[in-house]
Design a protein around this nucleic acid. Structure first.
Length: 733
DNA sequence: AGCACGCCGACT
DNA sequence: GTCGGCGTGCTC
């Protein structure tokens, strides 16, 4: 009888670890922390990871089952990485089993043990080398291959033959059969060789490179703060070269898939490296291969999106996160985490530096700079040829507005189009208008299920709730007073599109938002159309500001900035400032000077003026100061409490009690949303509500939750409800 | 989150 | 008698 127990993190949504017995007749030395196992769990078969091997258990032996299979002979994850995953599970209040499952590529999560794919290489055998041309004359294709292989100075892979326009497979096969050619299986260690040398850094870049290069031996967070065109990528390239030539690996995180190919291309041109890529556009095999190659040290660069932050590294040397402020780094569903914070923790665990690059740092990162936890490096200069755009506020007060567009903006658009140039207009909201109101009685179309208002979608001819997705027909008369005096209030992309089409009937107007780009390639076809040139107008939400480059756009209008100034979402002003800065950076990259016009009713707004005249850095500093003066802590967060039950009243009672409970732990903003449709719930008739908690607490968020969760648990015992809590992963440190 | 057990009303 | 809808409790 064995005298040890396995503590296993099972892939299940339960916040617990489960004890199992080892397999009969196995020895303690067979087991190591970090190995995967199959276990029977209830009557399900699940995968788990050994977290610990202990000599005691709280349950009696009879209650324990043995594991059904030990999958790995060696640990799949190291103690260091396990420590990080445990930290994340605790910090983000997510079950450890699911956190671990997310850290693996699909195939490994399914219990498979894929091996690193080998490449077949071909070379002439000793016998093949002694052949003379004449003996091959009768088969010209074999002769051709023989020549090719003879001229190659090393064994070649299949790509070597891909330039041939005839079928080389069968002659190669017969040459192998005759023993003239050897085929060997090898690790693919092909490196990309640079075609373009690295540029010489300018003084600011050199200073940044030196500061980071000096710190490569230990943990340190660098905030590399540089405007668009200041050459952050050059700094990355130098550092990467430095690190990989020392035999270490670099993890590079990017916010979006669309940005990977262009950066990957640039890296290939400039570095001698073995680079692997991982993002959701690749299939499971490709991602598993990238994961394994980094883990085994067969690759020295991993370029990936959010989820790549969990990939184990064999010889970690550096982590780089580009566009650090980007909200795509936050997973907003299920296991909610911030890849930035995980990356920082990871760097700390590995004792390596991390570089957070951005032109518009998040306030969290700037706060950490102020606190001395991060070191800020500024790249002030734009590289040669770039110029600053011209940003101006358009005072809309007392101006005649046509569907929220001022005469001066319309005039500027007209002039730009006359010059056969292009215009981009940013509007923060999709749909036609955010509110449908009755002129006669003031009734407003509200979502029956949520606290939010219904948005008018004219194209789809619907009222839609952007919170829960519910759709209604647009009424002709007011449901409250029966008058036919309903009118749209406010604006969205559809409305601006319509207004511009009527003002400039001869100019093509394209709209880019989540609705218009839902179909595959819709975005690309608009982009292609814009690149064709000619006078055009683009109307879009923020998604238009990222990554894409529109060379013929010389005027950018921002239509509804005021919402960002006074929104109850405390991050709105920060996002607004980031948008303006990004847009300005884009316009300024062209040879033609771009102009950015910002419509506002608050031209005196101090933060807005700081932004326009002094740029983002000053803006951010003042925004942080303002928060501190208002005694607001720099860290806010939201939590979503989901509650469901068969009995609607039980849910409401629970929520009301929860609300009261939360208010005793100081969470100023509480809102009930719901019932939100829950298609995953098999049984019809279950009611699901959500409680949005926004807290501005001085205490770290997880302390708040540690107080709240047991209380909610107690509350549940008296009622037949189920609940779960999802917490905004934006944070902290 | 699943899943099974077991309770109770409705039916060939 | 037993079929099936739904609350309850468990998963090492």
């Amino acid at each position: 009888m064995s005298d040890f127990y396995l503590n296993i993190a099972v892939d299940t949504p339960l916040h617990r670890i489960f004890d199992y017995l080892p397999i009969k007749n196995s020895a303690r030395s067979d087991y190591q922390i970090g190995q995967r196992v199959f276990v029977s769990f209830g009557r399900l078969k699940k995968i788990g990871v050994i977290l610990n091997i202990s000599s005691s258990t709280e349950l009696s032996r009879k209650q324990l089952k043995p594991i059904s299979q030990l999958i790995d002979r060696q640990p799949l994850i190291s103690l260091d990485d396990l420590k990080l995953y445990k930290w994340a599970a605790n910090y983000y209040h997510h079950p450890i089993g699911e956190v671990l499952a997310q850290a693996f590529p699909k195939q490994l999560r399914a219990g498979l043990t894929p091996t690193i794919e080998l490449t077949t290489r071909y070379a002439l055998s000793k016998h093949g080398l002694t052949l003379d041309e004449n003996s091959l004359k009768r088969s010209p294709r074999q002769l051709g291959l023989w020549h090719q292989l003879k001229n190659a100075d090393a064994p070649v892979d299949r790509d070597f033959f891909s330039t041939l326009d005839w079928n080389w497979r069968s002659p190669l096969k017969s040459m192998i059969e005759k023993g003239w050619v050897t085929a060997s299986q090898e690790h693919n260690t092909a490196t990309h060789s640079p075609t373009t040398p690295l540029f010489d850094p300018n003084p600011a870049q050199q200073t940044a490179i030196d500061s980071i290069a000096k710190a490569l031996e230990g943990f340190q967070v660098f905030l590399l703060d540089g405007v668009t065109g200041s050459g952050k990528t050059e700094v990355y390239l130098r550092l990467i070269q430095h690190v990989i030539s020392a035999g270490k690996q670099v993890l590079i995180l990017l916010p979006e898939i669309t940005l990977t190919p262009q950066l990957a291309q640039r890296f290939r041109q400039r570095l001698t490296a073995q680079m692997v890529i991982s993002h959701s556009g690749l299939n499971d095999t490709q991602r598993a291969q990238a994961w394994l190659r980094l883990k085994e040290g067969l690759a020295n660069i991993l370029l990936g999106t959010r989820s790549a932050v969990f990939t184990p590294m064999r010889t970690p040397g550096l982590i780089i996160m580009d566009e650090e402020h980007d909200i795509s780094f936050k997973q907003q569903e299920g296991f909610r985490y911030s890849a930035r914070d995980i990356a920082v923790m990871r760097a700390r665990d590995y004792s390596i530096p991390i570089v957070l690059g951005t032109a518009t740092p998040s306030l969290e990162s700037l706060y950490n700079v102020q606190q001395g936890r991060f070191k800020q490096l500024v790249l002030p200069e734009r590289t040669a040829g770039a110029s600053h755009p011209d940003i101006r506020l358009l005072d809309c007060r007392n101006q005649t507005l046509d569907n929220h567009l001022s005469q001066s903006l319309l005039k500027a658009i007209g002039k730009t189009l006359e010059r056969n140039e292009q215009v981009i207009l940013f509007v923060n909201r999709r749909g036609f208008a955010p509110v449908l109101m009755c002129h006669s009685c003031g009734w407003v179309a509200q979502c029956r299920r949520c606290d939010s208002r219904l948005v008018i979608h004219k194209n789809a001819n619907l009222l839609r709730c952007h919170h829960c997705g519910v759709e209604h027909a647009i009424p002709n008369t007011c449901p409250s007073c029966q008058q036919a005096e309903l009118f749209p209030l406010g604006l969205g992309t559809e409305r601006v599109e319509e207004t511009l089409s009527s003002h400039f009937p001869d100019t093509p107007v394209s709209r880019i938002d989540r609705d218009s780009t839902r179909q595959k390639n819709a975005m690309q076809s608009v982009i292609d159309k814009v690149h064709e040139g000619g006078a055009q107008i683009l109307v879009g939400t923020q998604m238009l500001a990222k990554g894409h480059h529109f060379p013929n756009v010389t005027l950018v209008g921002i239509v509804d900035i005021d919402a960002g100034l006074f929104s109850c979402d405390f991050r709105a002003s920060e996002r607004m400032a980031q948008l303006i800065t990004q847009v300005a950076g884009r316009a300024g990259r062209e040879e033609k000077l771009g102009r950015v016009l910002i419509q506002t009713h608050h031209p005196e707004h101090p933060l807005l003026n700081t932004l326009i005249t002094h740029g983002y850095t000053r803006f951010a500093k003042e925004a942080l100061d303002e928060r501190q003066q208002a005694q607001l802590p720099p860290y806010h967060y939201q939590a979503l409490l989901r509650v469901n039950a068969i009995n609607e009243q039980a849910v409401l009672n629970f929520l009301n009690d929860a609300k009261e409970l939360i208010s005793t732990i100081q969470a100023p903003l509480i809102q009930i949303l719901g019932p939100v449709p829950a298609p995953m719930l098999k049984r019809a008739g279950r009611f699901r509500y959500q409680l949005l908690i926004e807290s501005a607490q001085r205490k770290p968020r997880h302390q708040f939750l540690q107080q709240l969760l047991p209380k909610l648990e107690k509350l549940k015992s008296s009622r037949k409800v189920r609940w779960s809590i999802d917490v905004d992963p934006i944070d902290l440190f």
